[in-house]
Design a protein around this nucleic acid. Structure first.
Lengths: 339, 339
DNA sequence: ATTAGAAATGTAAGCCCTTACATTTTTTAC
DNA sequence: GTAAAAAATGTAAGGGCTTACATTTCTAAT
C-alpha cells in the first residue's frame, strides 16, 4: 500500500499510465466505465499523485508559501489567520517556511534558497525586513512575492504606516501635557526597532522636549527577538528603578506591554501605557494600543498575491494601512477599580 | 536568471551535469579547480537545485511537516515554538500544513492525502483528533508520524493526561468547600471537549455533588473552534446571568479564561477561576491554570520523530506528561487590590 | 456495410535531478 | 617510462508524473 505509483494502478486496471493520470486529475474525455475501474483500483492501492513528481512534471505546485522569521508571535499569528481564511477561497495549499534568524546576516541566503528551489507558485514574506538590495536581487528570480509588514518599490506590499502609529501614541501623551515618556522596544538594533525609536525621538523633538536616553529601554531577555511579556516586564522594572521614572510609556508591542503592566502592578505604580498591535487579548485586559489591522493585512496580501500570479506584468501596488489609536483603561489617569 | 537548471550550469562551465550535481551537493571527489569553476557559474546564474526535482530523484525530502487543523491558537503556537527550536538541531526544514476543519468529517481525507502525496520524511500531527480507525489506516502508508496532544497505540505520541488536569482543578475547588462549579468549554461536541466535560462530571460525582447542566456552558462565537477570548466572555456572561450563578469556574483554555475574567470585571463580580494551558500571558495576568508543558511537548515530539525516522522498527513510545495546577491570584478568595 | 468524425486510449518525450557504473585522467611506485 | 592504483569526470538510467501527438475504437450518417 505504501507508495504505489501510477504504473501500479495502470497495470492492475489494465490501462495506460496516461489514462490513470487523466482519471486522478479529473480530466474529461474518459469513458465512465474506465474512470470507475481506475478509481476503484486507485482507492484499493491508496494511490494519490506524489507531490514532488507532479510538481516537477507540471510547472505548477499549487502552493503558496509563507516565509517568516519567527513563527510564534502574536503579530504573525493574526496575520496568518487572515491569510489562512482568505486562501481557503482558492485552490491552493498553504505552506509555512520558517527561516531562522540567529541575529546574524544569515536570513537572506535562506530566503534566496527558498526562491531558487521553487517550492511554491507564490510567496508571502512576513516581517523579513530584508534590505532593498537584497529584495532587488530576489526580483531577478521573477517569482510572485508579496511583502507584509514591509515594503519595497518593486514588489506588491501591504504594510502599516509605523511612523504615524508612533506619532499618534506620542501625541496622545504630549497633548495631555505628559512629556517624560519612555519607550520600550524589542531589539533596538533591528530595522523596525530603529525606525520606531527614531519616530519616538522625532515626536519629542517636534514638541520641543529633550530626549532622555535613559527612557529608551528594552528587556534583557531576547527570546523571540524580545517580543515577549518577559522582555516588557524587565524593561519596565528598569524604568521604575530609575531615579526619576517616566510619567508614561509607549511599548512597541502589546505582548511586552502585558509584561510591563505586571511590573507596574508589582511595584505598585500605575503610569499610562500604550501598546502596539492590538492583539485580541488587549481588548480584554484594557490595554490602550495602536491597532494594526493584522488580519486584514494577511487577507489583503493573499488577494494581491493571487492577482499577481494571474498578471505578472501589472505594476506593483502598495497598500499602507493607517494605524489607529485605541484607548482603553490603561491610559486612564485615575486608578481604575473593580466595582 | 530565473530557473536555470543543472544543464545550463554544466554547459556554461564545460562539465557534465553529474559534476554539477556533485558540486552543488558538496560531494567529495571533485577537483578543487572544477569545484570553483562550477560554483562560480552556479552563483552567476543563481542556481540551486529545484526542490521538486531533487525530492523526486532522491527518495528523501529533508522536510518535517507539521499538520494542524487550526494554526492561530495559543496552544499550537507554544507547541510549535518547541518544535521549531528543536528542529534547528537537525538538518531538516519545517513545513506547516494547515488542514481545514469545517466542522464536518472532512479532515481525514485531507490528512490522508498529505501522507499519500509524500510531502515529507516525517509528520507531526497536532491535535488532529482523528479516530483510531483512521489512524490505523494511516499506518498502512508506513510513514513516520508522531502524535501531539493525542495518542494511539500504534504511533509515537506525546500528550498530557487530561483527566488528571481536570481532576486537579476540580479538587482544588472541592477541597476548599466549593461545590457549585461551572465549566466553560470550547466545542462541547468535539472529542476532547466531551472528554473534559466527562472528567468534570466524574469529579463532581465522586464528590457526591449533583451535576447542574446549566453550569456547563460555551460561548456562541465559534471562531477558532471557540478557543477565543470572546467565547469565554460570552460563556461567563451566561453564567452570571443565571438565577443562581456558580461559585467557581473551570475553563478549558486560558484564552477563554481571559474573556471570562473581563466579563466578571464588567459585572463587578469575582469568582475564582482556573484556566487550562498556562500560556505565557497567564503568568502576567495572574490567571491560575492547569499547566500543559506545550513547549516541551513540541520539542520532545520532534526528538521522537527523528528517532523514529532512524529506526522504523522500534515499538511506539508514549509520553504522557502530568499536568500541573498553578495557583495565581485568580483563585485567591479575597479581592486583590493594587497596592 | 462504409466511412468520416468524434471519443477514448496509448506512446513516448520531457520535467530536473541523483547515482551506479563506465571511462578517462592523474598520481604513485618501481 | 610504464603499469597499477587512485582520483576525477562522464554516461545513462531512473525517479513518478503530465501532455502533445499518434493510434485505436466507437458513433452516426450515408
Amino acid at each position: 500500500m505504501a507508495g504505489s505509483t501510477i504504473y501500479d494502478i495502470a497495470k492492475k486496471a489494465g490501462v495506460s499510465i496516461a489514462t490513470v493520470s487523466r482519471v486522478v486529475n479529473n480530466n474529461e474525455g474518459i469513458a465512465d466505465k474506465t474512470r470507475e475501474k481506475v478509481l476503484k483500483v486507485a482507492d484499493e492501492l491508496g494511490y494519490y499523485p506524489q507531490a514532488y513528481a507532479q510538481g516537477l512534471a507540471r510547472k505548477k505546485k499549487n502552493i503558496i508559501m509563507v516565509v517568516v522569521p519567527v513563527l510564534s508571535n502574536y503579530f504573525f499569528m493574526e496575520v496568518l489567520a487572515g491569510i489562512q481564511d482568505e486562501i481557503s477561497n482558492y485552490n491552493y495549499d498553504l505552506n509555512i517556511f520558517n527561516v531562522q534568524s540567529n541575529g546574524k546576516d544569515n536570513m537572506f541566503p535562506q530566503v534566496e534558497n527558498i526562491i531558487k528551489r521553487q517550492w511554491a507558485d507564490g510567496y508571502l514574506f512576513i516581517s523579513t525586513h530584508l534590505r532593498d538590495t537584497e529584495l532587488e536581487q530576489l526580483q531577478n528570480y521573477d517569482m510572485p512575492i508579496t511583502l507584509i509588514d514591509e515594503s519595497y518599490p518593486g514588489m506588491d506590499s501591504v504594510s502599516v504606516d509605523n511612523d504615524e502609529g508612533i506619532e499618534k501614541a506620542m501625541h496622545y501623551f504630549l497633548d495631555n501635557g505628559i512629556t517624560r515618556i519612555a519607550i520600550i522596544s524589542a531589539m533596538k538594533t533591528s530595522k523596525p526597532g530603529r525606525q520606531r525609536i527614531e519616530g519616538y525621538k522625532k515626536a519629542l523633538n517636534e514638541a520641543g522636549v529633550d530626549v532622555e536616553e535613559d527612557l529608551i529601554v528594552t528587556g534583557d531577555s531576547m527570546y523571540r527577538d524580545g517580543f515577549s511579556e518577559q522582555n516588557g516586564y524587565e524593561a519596565m522594572i528598569k524604568l521604575l528603578e530609575l531615579p526619576n521614572p517616566p510619567e508614561a510609556c509607549f511599548c512597541t508591542s502589546d505582548i511586552q506591554a502585558v509584561g510591563a503592566m505586571k511590573a507596574m502592578e508589582e511595584k505598585g505604580v500605575q503610569i499610562p501605557i500604550i501598546g502596539y498591535d492590538d492583539i485580541t487579548i488587549s481588548n480584554f485586559i484594557g490595554l490602550s494600543t495602536i491597532r494594526q489591522p493584522m488580519y486584514d493585512m494577511g487577507a489583503l496580501a493573499t488577494k494581491k498575491l493571487m492577482k499577481r500570479m494571474k498578471n505578472r506584468e501589472a505594476k506593483p501596488e502598495h497598500k499602507v494601512f493607517a494605524p489607529e489609536l485605541i484607548l482603553r483603561s490603561s491610559t486612564e489617569t485615575d486608578v481604575k477599580e473593580e466595582a
